[in-house]
Nucleic acid binder design. Structure first.
Lengths: 347, 347
DNA sequence: TCCAATGACTTTAACCTTAAAGTAAGGTGG
DNA sequence: CCACCTTACTTTAAGGTTAAAGTCATTGGA
């Protein structure tokens, strides 16, 4: 193949290889490889420039599969998702985590592999083999013991691992989470300052670390100020389940001074129920949310809530994961990102 | 390597290869490859069973990169995203399209590559080279001429292509979209039946095919029934922009009988503005949405809207794309998925 | 002046899979 | 009983990249 043929190839959809670039630059493919991988000591300055020019001219990009095959590194970060992927993608919080992860990945020439893990065959040998990534970033859901089992499994395999929104006190795990405790305290302090003494906390039936932190944060403040706190489990935290749970609690115990939503979704369900019953918010009853997403602003009245930066969590998790992969040193940091209080009309 | 060593390998994280399986099954790697790829005529029934057992026992999975390199097929579907990926992932509609696409892909042993295309360098040679997928599924946004240019580009390259939510009358493109026209008609007919005669349609400033269809559908019904229709542009369709636009329109023209939201987001912004002004919905004014997502149910009062199945759109688009890739015959179908009317208290 | 060290490359082989061509055993028809 | 076809495999080579080892001028030091 001559030079001009090679140049021509760029226009068509045929694969352009190191060989093509090498031909144009007048060197061997290995030299081009060295330039591409920044092994500067191996290549003279003039040659380097010539190679760069050829790469630019042809619009050459390395063939990821070939690279992976040879180097035995996938340049991919795995995003482990327990349960259903469509459901996962439906949650504005988790998708922003993915967005953050995906962005660090791209910046570092990595890609992201979304891998769903079904409950039954969780992370058996075939799946593990399929999960050929350099490291794994996991957001977990589901029962605590299943989560534990999965984490132990990954640690034993010595897969570089970063957990998102999961507290885990093991030597070799890095966790990235948000300051749920502080966020919950801020909300509770605010409510107390507004005069609330009887609070009702809405939580999903499923137990998970971030929610426990929020409950603890709220409880602490209540204890300190002599306020009461009733915890109401709202099933799968759907609109219907939450409304039913809140209705039952209110009917049984009467109106509290404030309903503290474990998240915005449940808070908005409560808002809707109260509107239907003609209970005025915040005059008759204050309502707060947690983990604000875009649509919380559409609530009437707009929610007093806490905003966390899911994108930043994904980004930090990815950065930490990359550091672990590149250095080989397993990070054991517990990174806690700040949250911010969002004022509103609901409390 | 002996058999037992090979079996051992499965426990560790070392890569398991065809050779390992072959050793256990007592055949050559090629035979294993034939079994894996369903070339049944090449392998005897007994051998096939032995190989299957070995694969199972070891938990072997093919090495995707090696496969790609050899077969020159990536087994990946590209999801082309104009503009920002985090923003894209923030939209419940588009993420469900991704979920659907991702599921067909997985079912057919394909993976999905999310590829953002920035406005500036849109799809230049390097990006195209990087986009090494067997086919492309695109959801487009941004100005019409940029979209056109990108589509033409892909068609010229003869990349198998499926467009989502984009009308395009070219011989070689397959489009998957929803019946926006019919959905809009249903909403408008409903409003007319409720006695509405003066309607106000909320649309974003940016022009795109699906929204135009909704406007046409609404306009047709209004024309047929002698109802008036004012079109209000709501900037970037954010809460603030929409509220400002609606406030201005109402102040200038007085209250219409109904506000027809081009989508749920704008409808909910209107609902909030009306609540703040003490205007009763639906008594004083009816409000409808479009393209329902989960949170529309949280609106007070709950939105009359139209539900489309974004997941199904992604799924159909992926299926069509796979057919195109496998058969090599470019589909030119224009697939229109049905939408369904969602009753509510807002109209 | 000659050897060793250095710099700037090139050569070779391997990563794992698969298309294509090869082979050997068993069967069939004339 | 031999040519010819099947059937059921095996062998070979290639796909694009890169680690490691090899080559060959220069340069610097003794």
């Amino acid at each position: 193949m001559t030079k001009s043929e090679t140049v021509n190839k760029a226009q068509r959809r045929g694969t352009l290889t190191l060989k093509d670039v090498a031909l144009v630059a007048g060197v061997t493919p290995m030299t081009v490889s060295n330039v591409l991988n920044g092994r500067d000591s191996q290549v003279g300055a003039k040659t380097r420039e010539r190679v760069r020019a050829a790469i630019e001219q042809l619009g050459y990009r390395p063939h990821a599969a070939a690279r992976q095959l040879r180097s035995q590194r996938t340049n991919a970060l795995g995003m482990l998702v327990l349960d259903d992927v469509p459901q996962f993608l439906n949650d504005p919080f988790t998708t922003q985590v993915v967005a953050g992860l995906s962005n660090v990945a791209t910046e570092n020439d990595y890609s992201v592999v979304l891998q769903g893990v079904r409950s039954d065959n969780m992370l058996d040998a075939p799946l593990l083999a399929q999960l050929r990534t350099d490291g794994v970033c996991a957001i977990l859901s589901g029962p605590r013991d299943r989560r534990r089992a999965l984490i132990e499994r990954l640690i034993n395999l010595r897969v570089p691992l970063v957990l998102v929104q999961e507290a885990y006190d093991h030597a070799d795990v890095c966790t990235v989470r948000q300051d749920d405790h502080r966020g919950a305290s801020q909300i509770a302090e605010y409510l107390v300052a507004q005069g609330a003494r009887r609070m009702m906390f809405l939580r999903p039936a499923e137990r998970w670390p971030a929610m426990s932190e929020r409950i603890r944060g709220t409880q602490n403040v209540c204890d300190r100020h002599g306020a009461s706190l009733t915890i109401v489990a709202c099933g799968d935290e759907s609109l219907a389940a939450t409304q039913a749970a809140v209705a039952e609690a209110i009917d049984a115990e009467g109106l509290p001074d404030a309903i503290v939503g474990g998240n915005d979704r449940m808070a908005m369900a409560a808002l809707k129920l109260l509107a239907q019953r003609g209970i005025k918010v915040p005059d008759d009853l204050r309502v707060t949310g947690f983990n604000s997403f875009d649509f919380a602003a559409y609530a009437v009245p707009s929610l007093v809530t806490v905003r966390s930066d899911a994108y930043a969590m994904g980004y930090r998790a990815g950065a930490e994961l990359l550091r672990t992969i590149e250095t080989g040193a397993f990070s054991t940091r517990d990174i806690v990102l700040p949250v911010s209080f969002v004022p509103g009309q609901s409390a």
